[in-house]
Each structure stands twice: as structure tokens, then as C-alpha cells.
Amino acid sequence: MLMPVRPRPHLDCVEPYLPGDSARCGTARVVKLSSNESPLGPSPRAKKAFRSEAMALARYPDAGAQALRRALAWCHGIDPNSIVFGAGSESLITLIARTFAGPGDAIAFPRFSFAAYKIAAQVAGACPVPLPEPEPASDDSLVRMADELTEDVRILFVANPGNPTGQCFAAGAITRLRNALDPNVLLVLDGAYAEHANHSVAGYRPGHELVDATTGNTVVLRTFSKAYGLAGARIGWAHCPPVVAGALDRVRDIFPVCRASLAAAHAGLLDTAHLSRAVEHNARWQPWLRRALEDAGLGTTGNGVNFVLVDFGSPARARAAEQHLRRQGYIPRTLVEYGLADCL
């Protein structure tokens, strides 16, 4: 009898990522709030650049993304050779996990974190290790995560600002965390919301200075999905030390980003006026929404992000709020899979 083809056994435990719901609500007007997308959308220049690639779709993209690489290096003051591109941050998360961890290793992250960290650990065959969630506005609790790590931990993912909690830590706390970690632990700082935090959180920095200052053990992830409004283009990048960049470049997809997305990202990056409008719009209305919710007696968190985490006090109240919002044409994000059933 022929044996059926089987995937590697450790993949049996992987639960697929559940993206924000896009289902229509049965109303004429639908407002999707479930994926933290930009309400302003992409730069008009980015849309024009995307469309301009239509006649060149028979051509492969530039595998090294040299034009965008040089522009990012100039904008952020970093070495262009330290940049690795991917189809959104999550592809880079998986790539880092597969490259630097495997069976017998562990990958750690705060308990209430982007679900892609756990999935990436499982795909790599490593053990995912949720850590106690840092206390709000407590730098010491962030640094104490280093004490929770066992010797088998190879990677620590920390989103700053965090998703879905919206917690944000100043640069000094992140530097203290890096200094408290074993040098053999790769610290990956996920800055998906960095543009918003740069604008609204005092003392915040994404952490690029740690990539340059340390000896090959810190990576910063960035994306064009949030403030740049290019979630559908699927493009992210990692700022890496030489040893990390070299390893990732050897094992990444040959053409990680399509040419239209590269063109849109390049044009969007250079349209600083549109980026300013996006972050200023969020800096005005996100705090307004938090105040309104808190005035209604609800707990909220969310600093330096384009979303608000709302605590309804019980799963039943959260479900009732979700159903009410959907009847009005709003699609929120449920967080049962994150262990936050009381929240939207």
C-alpha cells in the first residue's frame, strides 16, 4: 500500500492566521475597522506609480529593489546593504524564524502579540514561548522579560508599538531590554506602527540605532501597510546587521516583491506631505475616540497606533458590542484567539 504524502509532523500544530474580517454587514455603507488600514489610503503618487507598471508586467522586478533600497537608506540614514525586503512584515517574520531557529530552539514574544510570531515559530519547528505581558507604562516590566528567557530561546519578537494592545515604550526602555538580553538572542523590533508613534509618543524611536550599535543581534521591521496606506501592495522591509542581512538574502524568495508594489512604495516614501497628513489625521482622531469611549465608561489602550483596544469587561458585552457595530455597518476585530475575549 502506498503511504500518503505527509507534511513535517511539527506543522500539524500550526493554526492558520485569522486576518481581520472583511465580510459585508448587509448595510449600504461598510466601514472596515478590523485590519488597522489607513483611512486616507495611499499617496496619489503611489497610485500613479503602481498604474504606470501595467505595461511592464511581463518583466521580472528588480530582485534587489535597488531604487527603493537607496531611498530608504537615505531617508533613515542607514546602510542600503542592511535592508532586506519581503511581502509585508509577516513574510520577514517567518523568514527570520526559519533562518535563525529550528527544532530544539525556542522563540519568545509577549503574550498578547501579533499572532504571526507564534505561527512563525511553529513553522520553523521551534517552540513558541509567550512571556508575561509588560505592564502599561512600566519600563521595568518590559526589561524583566529578559529574566524570563531560557537558554534555548534564539529570537525575541517585540512589537513596539504593540498589536493588539497598543502599548508603546520609549527608546530608553528598549535599549535597556537589549542590554539585559544574552548577546546570542536575536531581538526583533516590529515597528509596523512606527510612523504614528514617531509623531505622537515622546521619546519613541523604532530602534534603528540598536542595529548599528550592537554586534549582529538586533533587527528592526518596518512596513508600508499602515501609515503609507499600501496594505494591498504587500511590502515590508527589515533593517539588519550584516550577518543577519546576509543570511536572509541567501534564503529569501528570489523576487520577494512585485514591481508595481516596489514602484508604489518608492513613490509613497517620497511623498512626505501625504504621510504627514495620514499621521496627523490619526493623531487628531484616535485620541478623540479614546476619550469618547472612556467617557462612556470603557477601558482603552492605544499609544502611537492607528487603532484602539477597547475592554468591555466581559466576553458577552464584547460580543454584544460587535453585533451592534456590525448592524450599523462597522466591522471591528474580535480578539478571542488572542486571549482577549473581553475586548474589541
Rank of each mutant, 00 (worst) to 15 (best):
E280K: 13
I235R: 06
W285E: 06
Y338G: 00
T214Q: 00
R6H: 00
V251W: 03
L298V: 02
V14D: 04
L72G: 03
V153P: 12
T218M: 00
A192T: 11
A192S: 12
G20C: 02
A108Y: 07
E90A: 08
P16V: 10
C13I: 05
G166E: 01
A213W: 05
C75N: 00
A194V: 12
E280A: 13
R291P: 03
T301L: 13
I93E: 15
S276C: 08
G102Q: 06
V158K: 10
M55H: 13
A197V: 03
E148C: 15
N179M: 15
Y60W: 13
A115W: 07
G77H: 01
A320V: 06
A54F: 13
L262T: 01
L95N: 05
R8W: 10
E294T: 10
G229I: 06
Y204S: 03
P136M: 09
C168E: 00
A278V: 06
A260R: 09
A65D: 10
V153N: 08
L298R: 04
A65I: 08
E53Q: 10
G313R: 14
A265G: 10
A231K: 14
A121D: 00
C75V: 02
V211F: 08
W285L: 13
L57C: 12
M55N: 09
P80D: 03
L298T: 02
M55F: 10
V84A: 01
F50D: 05
G20Y: 05
P164W: 01
H239D: 13
L269I: 11
A341P: 08
P103A: 08
A101V: 04
F85Y: 11
R51V: 09
P44E: 12
P161H: 03
L335S: 00
L275R: 14
S91P: 02
G268Q: 05
G203D: 12
F114L: 05
R333W: 02
P206C: 15
A71I: 01
R222M: 11
C168G: 00
A265Q: 09
L11C: 06
L269Q: 09
L210S: 00
A265P: 09
A233W: 13
G207A: 08
L142D: 12
P44N: 09
P241Q: 08
V123N: 04
A320N: 09
W288C: 07
F50K: 11
S43E: 04
G104H: 07
S22E: 14
N179T: 15
V31C: 01
L95M: 06
C258S: 09
V153H: 11
A106K: 14
A260Y: 04
G86E: 00
A238R: 03
A247K: 15
G229C: 08
R144C: 10
A245V: 07
R176Y: 15
L248P: 06
R24W: 15
E337V: 02
S314C: 12
C343V: 13
P183D: 08
P4Y: 13
A180R: 15
P61E: 00
N184A: 12
A283N: 14
L186A: 02
L72W: 06
